[in-house]
Design a protein around this nucleic acid. Structure first.
Length: 276
DNA sequence: AACTCGCACAACCGCGGATGG
DNA sequence: GCCATCCGCGGTTGTGCGAGT
Protein backbone atom coordinates (compact mmCIF):
# COMPACT_ATOMS: atom_id res chain seq x y z
CA UNK A 1 0.00 0.00 0.00
CA UNK A 2 2.55 2.54 1.07
CA UNK A 3 2.17 6.06 2.15
CA UNK A 4 1.65 8.93 -0.11
CA UNK A 5 4.26 11.63 0.24
CA UNK A 6 3.33 14.46 2.51
CA UNK A 7 3.45 16.77 -0.45
CA UNK A 8 4.65 16.97 -3.97
CA UNK A 9 8.26 17.97 -3.92
CA UNK A 10 8.22 19.35 -7.41
CA UNK A 11 8.22 23.11 -7.66
CA UNK A 12 8.72 23.57 -3.95
CA UNK A 13 11.42 25.62 -2.35
CA UNK A 14 13.87 23.76 -0.19
CA UNK A 15 16.70 24.69 2.07
CA UNK A 16 17.06 27.87 4.03
CA UNK A 17 14.02 30.03 4.48
CA UNK A 18 14.04 33.59 3.21
CA UNK A 19 12.91 36.55 5.26
CA UNK A 20 9.93 36.94 2.98
CA UNK A 21 8.86 33.34 3.48
CA UNK A 22 9.20 33.78 7.22
CA UNK A 23 7.06 36.87 7.10
CA UNK A 24 4.38 35.20 5.03
CA UNK A 25 4.27 32.18 7.30
CA UNK A 26 4.22 34.26 10.46
CA UNK A 27 1.49 36.50 9.16
CA UNK A 28 -0.61 33.59 8.06
CA UNK A 29 -0.35 31.83 11.39
CA UNK A 30 -1.13 35.01 13.27
CA UNK A 31 -4.33 35.29 11.32
CA UNK A 32 -5.39 31.68 10.99
CA UNK A 33 -3.56 30.00 13.82
CA UNK A 34 -1.50 26.82 13.80
CA UNK A 35 -2.59 23.54 12.34
CA UNK A 36 -3.74 22.28 8.98
CA UNK A 37 -0.14 22.21 7.94
CA UNK A 38 -0.80 20.28 4.80
CA UNK A 39 -2.98 22.98 3.34
CA UNK A 40 -1.13 25.89 4.86
CA UNK A 41 1.45 26.41 2.11
CA UNK A 42 -1.19 26.55 -0.58
CA UNK A 43 -3.39 28.89 1.40
CA UNK A 44 -0.53 31.11 2.44
CA UNK A 45 1.01 31.15 -0.99
CA UNK A 46 4.21 29.49 0.07
CA UNK A 47 6.11 27.11 -2.14
CA UNK A 48 6.97 24.91 0.77
CA UNK A 49 6.04 21.53 2.11
CA UNK A 50 3.59 21.64 4.97
CA UNK A 51 5.98 19.80 7.19
CA UNK A 52 8.63 22.32 6.38
CA UNK A 53 6.29 25.14 7.38
CA UNK A 54 5.43 23.45 10.61
CA UNK A 55 9.08 22.87 11.43
CA UNK A 56 10.01 26.43 10.60
CA UNK A 57 7.27 27.79 12.80
CA UNK A 58 7.84 25.51 15.73
CA UNK A 59 11.59 25.70 15.76
CA UNK A 60 12.26 29.24 14.71
CA UNK A 61 9.39 31.63 14.18
CA UNK A 62 7.29 30.98 17.24
CA UNK A 63 7.26 34.15 19.36
CA UNK A 64 8.06 32.35 22.59
CA UNK A 65 11.23 30.78 21.31
CA UNK A 66 14.16 31.48 23.56
CA UNK A 67 17.29 32.10 21.56
CA UNK A 68 20.79 31.89 22.85
CA UNK A 69 22.94 29.41 24.66
CA UNK A 70 21.64 26.69 26.88
CA UNK A 71 22.12 27.75 30.47
CA UNK A 72 23.74 25.54 33.04
CA UNK A 73 20.46 24.86 34.75
CA UNK A 74 18.87 23.96 31.47
CA UNK A 75 21.76 21.72 30.64
CA UNK A 76 21.49 19.85 33.90
CA UNK A 77 17.81 19.45 33.38
CA UNK A 78 18.38 18.07 29.91
CA UNK A 79 20.87 15.56 31.20
CA UNK A 80 18.63 14.43 33.98
CA UNK A 81 15.61 14.16 31.81
CA UNK A 82 17.56 12.39 29.13
CA UNK A 83 18.63 9.81 31.64
CA UNK A 84 15.06 9.44 32.60
CA UNK A 85 13.65 9.31 29.13
CA UNK A 86 16.56 8.35 26.99
CA UNK A 87 15.69 4.69 27.04
CA UNK A 88 12.18 5.31 25.93
CA UNK A 89 11.99 4.41 22.33
CA UNK A 90 9.85 6.72 20.30
CA UNK A 91 7.90 8.10 23.19
CA UNK A 92 8.31 11.79 22.54
CA UNK A 93 11.55 11.95 24.39
CA UNK A 94 12.83 15.26 23.08
CA UNK A 95 9.47 16.90 23.09
CA UNK A 96 8.96 15.89 26.70
CA UNK A 97 12.31 17.32 27.62
CA UNK A 98 11.54 20.44 25.66
CA UNK A 99 8.28 20.70 27.53
CA UNK A 100 10.22 21.21 30.73
CA UNK A 101 12.34 23.95 29.21
CA UNK A 102 10.18 26.92 28.32
CA UNK A 103 11.17 28.52 25.08
CA UNK A 104 13.32 25.62 23.99
CA UNK A 105 12.35 23.39 21.12
CA UNK A 106 12.77 19.68 20.85
CA UNK A 107 14.96 20.16 17.82
CA UNK A 108 17.20 22.55 19.67
CA UNK A 109 17.58 20.22 22.60
CA UNK A 110 18.17 17.30 20.31
CA UNK A 111 20.87 19.22 18.48
CA UNK A 112 22.43 20.29 21.75
CA UNK A 113 22.52 16.74 22.93
CA UNK A 114 23.95 15.41 19.71
CA UNK A 115 26.63 18.04 19.45
CA UNK A 116 27.59 18.63 23.04
CA UNK A 117 26.15 16.42 25.70
CA UNK A 118 26.19 13.25 23.66
CA UNK A 119 29.88 13.61 23.05
CA UNK A 120 30.46 14.02 26.71
CA UNK A 121 28.46 10.90 27.28
CA UNK A 122 30.62 8.97 24.87
CA UNK A 123 33.76 10.31 26.43
CA UNK A 124 32.50 9.32 29.82
CA UNK A 125 31.72 5.85 28.55
CA UNK A 126 35.23 5.43 27.26
CA UNK A 127 36.61 6.52 30.61
CA UNK A 128 34.49 4.03 32.43
CA UNK A 129 35.39 1.27 30.02
CA UNK A 130 39.05 1.99 30.37
CA UNK A 131 38.81 2.18 34.11
CA UNK A 132 37.07 -1.13 34.32
CA UNK A 133 39.54 -2.65 31.93
CA UNK A 134 42.47 -1.39 33.95
CA UNK A 135 41.02 -2.51 37.22
CA UNK A 136 40.26 -5.96 35.94
CA UNK A 137 43.73 -6.25 34.52
CA UNK A 138 45.24 -5.31 37.85
CA UNK A 139 43.05 -7.75 39.68
CA UNK A 140 43.86 -10.58 37.34
CA UNK A 141 47.56 -10.43 36.50
CA UNK A 142 47.59 -14.07 35.41
CA UNK A 143 45.59 -13.10 32.39
CA UNK A 144 48.21 -10.74 31.15
CA UNK A 145 49.02 -13.05 28.31
CA UNK A 146 45.53 -12.68 26.98
CA UNK A 147 45.33 -10.05 24.33
CA UNK A 148 42.97 -7.40 25.48
CA UNK A 149 42.51 -4.48 23.24
CA UNK A 150 42.96 -1.39 25.32
CA UNK A 151 42.18 1.97 23.94
CA UNK A 152 44.58 4.44 25.45
CA UNK A 153 42.88 7.61 26.32
CA UNK A 154 44.13 10.66 28.03
CA UNK A 155 41.16 10.51 30.24
CA UNK A 156 42.05 7.24 31.88
CA UNK A 157 45.43 8.55 32.84
CA UNK A 158 43.65 11.47 34.24
CA UNK A 159 41.32 9.32 36.24
CA UNK A 160 44.24 7.54 37.79
CA UNK A 161 45.94 10.75 38.78
CA UNK A 162 43.16 13.01 39.79
CA UNK A 163 41.00 12.08 42.69
CA UNK A 164 37.66 13.04 41.53
CA UNK A 165 35.64 14.92 44.12
CA UNK A 166 32.85 13.20 45.86
CA UNK A 167 30.84 16.30 45.34
CA UNK A 168 29.14 16.69 42.08
CA UNK A 169 31.05 18.90 39.75
CA UNK A 170 30.69 22.55 39.20
CA UNK A 171 29.20 24.82 36.71
CA UNK A 172 30.43 26.37 33.51
CA UNK A 173 30.59 29.85 32.16
CA UNK A 174 27.21 30.83 31.00
CA UNK A 175 26.57 31.83 27.50
CA UNK A 176 29.99 31.33 26.07
CA UNK A 177 29.99 27.66 25.22
CA UNK A 178 32.79 27.50 27.68
CA UNK A 179 32.06 24.47 29.67
CA UNK A 180 34.10 23.30 32.55
CA UNK A 181 31.82 20.57 33.66
CA UNK A 182 32.12 18.26 30.79
CA UNK A 183 31.04 14.77 31.36
CA UNK A 184 34.42 13.39 32.22
CA UNK A 185 34.33 15.60 35.23
CA UNK A 186 30.75 15.00 35.94
CA UNK A 187 30.93 11.29 36.07
CA UNK A 188 34.43 10.94 37.34
CA UNK A 189 33.54 10.95 40.97
CA UNK A 190 31.67 7.73 40.73
CA UNK A 191 33.75 4.69 40.57
CA UNK A 192 30.79 2.46 40.12
CA UNK A 193 28.00 2.74 37.70
CA UNK A 194 24.66 2.62 39.29
CA UNK A 195 22.03 1.05 37.18
CA UNK A 196 18.72 2.63 37.90
CA UNK A 197 15.45 1.82 36.44
CA UNK A 198 13.09 4.55 35.52
CA UNK A 199 11.09 4.42 38.70
CA UNK A 200 14.13 4.95 40.79
CA UNK A 201 15.06 7.86 38.66
CA UNK A 202 11.64 9.31 39.09
CA UNK A 203 11.82 8.88 42.82
CA UNK A 204 15.11 10.66 42.90
CA UNK A 205 13.66 13.40 40.81
CA UNK A 206 10.92 13.85 43.31
CA UNK A 207 13.35 13.98 46.13
CA UNK A 208 15.36 16.74 44.62
CA UNK A 209 14.25 19.24 47.13
CA UNK A 210 13.17 22.28 45.22
CA UNK A 211 13.99 22.23 41.56
CA UNK A 212 11.21 22.64 39.13
CA UNK A 213 11.35 18.94 38.59
CA UNK A 214 9.16 18.72 41.61
CA UNK A 215 6.37 19.40 39.26
CA UNK A 216 7.41 16.72 36.88
CA UNK A 217 4.40 14.96 35.53
CA UNK A 218 5.18 11.42 36.48
CA UNK A 219 1.87 10.15 35.39
CA UNK A 220 2.14 11.86 32.08
CA UNK A 221 5.47 10.25 31.54
CA UNK A 222 4.39 6.83 32.54
CA UNK A 223 1.08 6.75 30.79
CA UNK A 224 2.68 6.97 27.41
CA UNK A 225 4.82 3.97 28.11
CA UNK A 226 3.49 0.46 28.11
CA UNK A 227 3.19 -0.67 31.67
CA UNK A 228 5.49 2.02 32.89
CA UNK A 229 8.47 -0.27 32.68
CA UNK A 230 11.74 1.08 31.48
CA UNK A 231 14.10 -0.74 29.29
CA UNK A 232 17.72 -0.91 30.11
CA UNK A 233 19.25 2.38 29.32
CA UNK A 234 22.73 2.31 27.88
CA UNK A 235 23.00 6.04 28.35
CA UNK A 236 22.85 5.60 32.07
CA UNK A 237 26.22 4.05 31.79
CA UNK A 238 27.37 7.22 30.17
CA UNK A 239 25.83 9.43 32.76
CA UNK A 240 26.03 7.56 35.98
CA UNK A 241 23.49 9.59 37.81
CA UNK A 242 22.97 7.98 41.11
CA UNK A 243 20.26 9.02 43.45
CA UNK A 244 22.79 10.57 45.74
CA UNK A 245 24.16 12.58 42.88
CA UNK A 246 20.78 13.81 41.92
CA UNK A 247 20.12 14.83 45.46
CA UNK A 248 23.43 16.58 45.68
CA UNK A 249 22.71 18.44 42.52
CA UNK A 250 19.41 19.55 43.81
CA UNK A 251 21.01 21.22 46.76
CA UNK A 252 23.04 23.27 44.33
CA UNK A 253 25.99 23.78 46.63
CA UNK A 254 27.93 22.19 43.87
CA UNK A 255 27.16 25.03 41.57
CA UNK A 256 29.27 27.62 43.27
CA UNK A 257 31.59 29.38 40.94
CA UNK A 258 34.61 28.70 43.08
CA UNK A 259 34.18 25.03 42.48
CA UNK A 260 34.92 25.56 38.86
CA UNK A 261 38.58 26.13 39.43
CA UNK A 262 39.39 22.55 40.23
CA UNK A 263 37.33 21.37 37.37
CA UNK A 264 39.02 23.71 34.97
CA UNK A 265 42.32 22.25 36.00
CA UNK A 266 40.86 18.82 35.53
CA UNK A 267 39.68 19.80 32.10
CA UNK A 268 43.18 21.01 31.36
CA UNK A 269 44.58 17.66 32.37
CA UNK A 270 42.10 15.94 30.17
CA UNK A 271 43.00 18.09 27.25
CA UNK A 272 46.73 18.07 27.56
CA UNK A 273 48.80 15.94 25.22
CA UNK A 274 51.58 15.36 27.65
CA UNK A 275 50.39 12.00 28.78
CA UNK A 276 52.66 9.27 27.59
C1' DA B 1 45.39 35.24 2.15
C1' DA B 2 44.01 30.68 1.26
C1' DC B 3 42.83 26.43 2.78
C1' DT B 4 41.22 22.80 5.97
C1' DC B 5 38.75 21.19 9.75
C1' DG B 6 35.40 20.96 13.29
C1' DC B 7 31.32 22.69 15.32
C1' DA B 8 26.63 24.27 15.72
C1' DC B 9 22.30 24.53 13.99
C1' DA B 10 18.62 24.67 10.54
C1' DA B 11 16.26 21.76 7.67
C1' DC B 12 14.96 17.37 5.61
C1' DC B 13 13.40 12.59 5.62
C1' DG B 14 11.13 8.47 6.97
C1' DC B 15 8.43 6.30 10.24
C1' DG B 16 4.74 5.52 13.62
C1' DG B 17 0.69 7.01 16.19
C1' DA B 18 -3.73 9.27 16.07
C1' DT B 19 -7.87 10.23 13.90
C1' DG B 20 -11.77 10.28 10.94
C1' DG B 21 -14.57 8.39 7.16
C1' DG C 1 -12.18 -3.35 11.36
C1' DC C 2 -9.97 -1.23 7.40
C1' DC C 3 -7.97 2.37 5.03
C1' DA C 4 -6.37 7.01 4.03
C1' DT C 5 -4.66 11.02 5.79
C1' DC C 6 -2.56 14.17 8.97
C1' DC C 7 0.53 15.25 12.58
C1' DG C 8 4.53 14.87 15.24
C1' DC C 9 8.74 12.67 16.45
C1' DG C 10 13.69 11.04 16.13
C1' DG C 11 17.53 10.40 13.19
C1' DT C 12 20.24 12.28 9.75
C1' DT C 13 22.09 15.54 6.48
C1' DG C 14 23.51 20.02 4.64
C1' DT C 15 25.55 24.30 5.29
C1' DG C 16 27.49 28.44 7.25
C1' DC C 17 30.97 30.09 10.20
C1' DG C 18 34.93 30.50 13.09
C1' DA C 19 39.39 28.68 14.52
C1' DG C 20 43.60 26.81 13.33
C1' DT C 21 47.44 26.04 10.09
Amino acid sequence: MGRSPCCSKEGLNRGAWTALEDKILTSYIHVHGEGKWRNLPKRAGLKRCGKSCRLRWLNYLRPDIKRGNISHDEEELIIRLHNLLGNRVRTRRWSLIAGRLPGRTDNEIKNYWNTTLGKRAKAQASIEAKTISTESRLNEPSKSSTKIEVIRTKAIRCSSKVMVPLQPPATHQHGQHHYTNNNEERGGGFSTIEAHNGIQMLESLYSDGGSNLLSFEINELLKSHDGGEFEENPMQQHFPLGEAMLKDWSTCHCLDDNCATDLESLAFLLDTDEWP
